[in-house]
Design a protein around this nucleic acid. Structure first.
Length: 492
RNA sequence: GGCCCCUUGGUCAAGUGGUUAAGACACCGCCCUUUCACGGCGGAAUCACGGGUUCAAAUCCCGUAGGGGUCACCA
C-alpha cells in the first residue's frame, strides 16, 4: 500500500478540550507522525445550536499546548479545504441530489414530535427505537400534498435491505452489522439543510483523502452507516480503528463531563501548572502500552515507537495516582529557575507575594520551591505545600501537641530562641550550628531536640529540612511561632 | 430490550499453546533521613465461571455471567 497516510482529528466546537478527545487527537497524531503522514484538523460544526463561543479556538490552543501540531486546519488551510463543515454545503448538496436521483435517498415529512411518539411506542412495546419507513414510498401526489401543507422535508438514506456491513477494525478485528439492526433509514440532511454527522464525516473523509479513522469506541455503531455511503458512491472506505473509552475507575463508566471527581479538561490541568509533557505521557499510556518496561517517554520517543497494534481492547481507567506520579517525575527534572517562574503567578494569585517581586523575593521563592520541588506534581501545588510560610496563624496537629507536652521541651525552646536571636548570618548553615549549640548546652539530642523545635516553629511533625525551613521563615516569624507554642504549652 | 464491544492483582498492563504469569501506580515492611518527601530493597496481590480442543490453555472454540457502548433532524 503506497497510499499516503492521512488522519484527522475532528472535534465539534461544543466545549473545551476534554481528556478523551485529547487522547483521540494524540493517537491520531502519533499514528500520522510515526508513518510520516499528515495530521488534519477538521471542525464538525453542523449543529449551530450547540456551538459555544470560542470553542474551536480553545480546542486548538489546548492541543498546541499539549505539543500537538498539524498539517491542515481551518486557520492554516490546505489543499482539501474548507476545513469547517459549515462551509462545505456546496460539496454535500450535489451529492445528496445524486443520491435522490438514484433513489438511494428520499424525502421524509415526519415531524420530530411524530417520530418521538413513534419511538416511545416502540420502546413501550419493548422494541428497539427505529424509523418505520413511513415516508419511504410516498407517491409524487402525496409528497406534493405535504409540501403544500408547508412541511419542509428532511432527507433519509435508504438502507440497502438484507446486506451486512463488515469492516476489519484496526484494534478489534472484524465487526459485522446487519442492515436491519441499524435503526431504519437515517437522516442525511436535516430540516435546516445541514448534513448530519454521519453523512458529512463520510464525504469529508473521502474528499480529504483520509486513509485511517482512529476514534473512540462509541463510534462503532456509526461505522455501518458510513460504510453504506462509501458503497453508494462506490468509494473506497478508509480503515477504521476504534479505541476503548476512558472510564472512571470508581464507576466503571465512560468519563462523563459532569463527573466532578476527576478534572476532565486539559485546560484545568494547564491552569494548575501541570507540565504538558507529563500530561502527554500520561494520556498516551491510557489504553496503549509500549514494548519495554519504561513508562516515561518524550513526544519524540512516542512518535518513534508508536504502533497501533498495541492499542488495548479493554477500557482504561483514569488513575489520578498515576498522573500525579508521572507529573512528579517531570517536575523533579525541571530546571529550578523555570519552575520558579512558573510558580510565581500562583503565589501572586493566592495573595502570598506581590506581582513582579523583587530580586531578593524571587531568590527567596526559588529557595522555597527548592524545598518542595521533589514532591510537587504541578506548579500550583506550591501554594498548598508552603502555606506555613505565608499564613500568620499556626495550627498544631493533635500529635504535635503531644510532642510539645514533652518534659524537656521548654528547655530546648528557650535555649533555641536565644540562639535564634543572635544567629548571624540568618542562613541554614548557621542555623544548623545553632541547633548543635542547643544540643551542647542542654545535653538533649536527636528526636528530643529536633522534634520540639520543628513542631514549635511549624506546628507540624513533617516537612523539609529544618534549618532550611527556618531560614526561609525568617528570624522574626520563627521566634514568633516559638512564642505561640510556648503560650500553648503554658495552657496545658 | 436489539445490536456491537470488552473481561489478567485495587488500577494500568505485558503475554498470541509449554513462562517461577513481566513491569508501573497504589498498598505494606525494611533501609536512608531529626521528620516528611525523594531514593533503594523487599512483600502481599491477578488469568470471571463452566464446558470442550490439545500431551499441554491466561492464550484456540462454545456457552454462562458480569461490565461497557449505541440505538437523535448531537457529534
Amino acid at each position: 500500500m503506497t497510499e499516503k497516510i492521512r488522519v484527522r482529528y475532528a472535534p465539534s466546537p461544543t466545549g473545551h478540550l476534554h481528556i478523551g478527545n485529547a487522547r483521540t487527537a494524540l493517537f491520531n497524531y502519533l499514528f500520522a507522525r510515526h508513518h510520516g503522514g499528515d495530521f488534519i484538523i477538521r471542525i464538525e460544526d453542523t449543529d449551530q445550536k450547540r456551538e459555544i463561543e470560542a470553542g474551536e479556538q480553545s480546542q486548538l490552543e489546548n492541543l498546541k499546548w499539549l505539543g500537538i501540531d498539524w498539517d491542515e486546519s481551518p486557520s492554516e488551510g490546505g489543499p482539501y479545504g474548507p476545513y469547517r463543515q459549515s462551509e462545505r454545503k456546496d460539496i454535500y448538496d450535489p451529492l445528496i441530489d445524486q443520491l435522490m436521483v438514484s433513489n438511494r435517498a428520499y424525502k421524509c415529512y415526519c415531524t420530530s414530535e411524530e417520530l418521538e411518539a413513534e419511538r416511545e411506542a416502540q420502546r413501550a412495546r419493548g422494541e428497539m427505537p427505529h424509523y418505520s419507513g413511513k415516508c419511504a414510498h410516498l407517491s409524487a401526489a402525496e409528497q406534493k400534498a405535504k409540501e403544500e401543507e408547508g412541511i419542509t422535508p428532511v432527507i433519509r438514506f435508504r438502507i440497502p435491505k438484507g446486506s451486512t456491513f463488515t469492516f476489519d477494525d484496526m484494534v478489534k478485528g472484524d465487526i459485522t452489522f446487519e442492515s436491519d439492526s441499524i435503526g431504519g433509514d437515517w437522516i442525511i440532511r436535516k430540516r435546516d439543510g445541514m448534513p448530519t454527522y454521519n453523512f458529512a464525516v463520510t464525504i469529508d473523509d473521502h474528499y480529504m483523502k483520509i486513509s485511517h479513522v482512529l476514534r473512540g469506541d462509541d463510534h462503532i455503531a456509526n461505522t455501518p452507516k458510513q460504510i453504506m455511503v462509501y458503497d453508494a458512491f462506490e468509494w473506497k472506505a478508509p480503515r477504521f480503528g476504534h479505541m476503548t473509552l476512558i472510564i472512571n475507575a470508581d464507576t466503571g463508566k465512560k468519563l462523563s463531563k459532569r463527573d466532578e471527581s476527576i478534572l476532565q479538561f486539559i485546560e484545568q490541568y494547564r491552569d494548575l501548572g501541570y507540565m504538558p509533557e507529563a500530561l502527554f505521557n500520561f494520556i498516551t499510556l491510557l489504553g496503549w502500552s509500549p514494548v519495554g518496561e519504561d513508562e516515561l517517554f518524550s513526544k519524540e520517543e512516542f512518535v518513534e515507537t508508536f504502533d497501533h497494534k498495541r492499542l488495548g481492547t479493554s477500557p482504561a481507567a483514569f488513575d489520578g495516582n498515576k498522573l500525579e506520579w508521572i507529573s512528579n517525575q517531570y517536575m523533579k527534572d525541571m530546571d529550578i529557575d523555570e519552575l520558579t517562574s512558573k510558580a510565581i503567578p500562583y503565589l501572586v494569585e493566592a495573595g502570598y507575594i506581590e506581582a513582579d517581586p523583587s530580586e531578593e523575593k524571587s531568590e527567596w521563592v526559588k529557595k522555597l520551591i527548592g524545598l518542595y520541588q521533589e514532591q510537587m506534581s504541578y506548579a500550583a501545588e506550591i501554594t498548598k505545600l508552603a502555606v506555613l510560610f505565608f499564613e500568620d496563624k499556626l495550627d498544631w496537629s493533635d500529635e504535635s501537641k503531644e510532642v510539645l507536652k514533652g518534659e524537656t521541651v521548654p528547655t530546648v525552646l528557650e535555649a533555641f530562641t536565644e540562639q535564634l536571636k543572635t544567629v548571624e548570618p540568618f542562613e541554614a548553615d548557621a542555623i544548623k550550628k545553632a541547633i548543635k549549640a542547643v544540643q551542647k548546652e542542654t545535653g538533649i539530642k536527636g528526636k528530643n531536640l529536633f522534634m520540639p523545635i520543628r513542631v514549635a516553629i511549624t506546628g507540624q511533625q513533617h516537612g523539609p529540612q529544618l534549618h532550611d525551613t527556618i531560614e526561609l521563615l525568617g528570624r522574626d516569624k520563627a521566634i514568633a511561632n516559638i512564642n505561640k507554642s510556648q503560650d500553648l504549652i503554658k495552657s496545658f
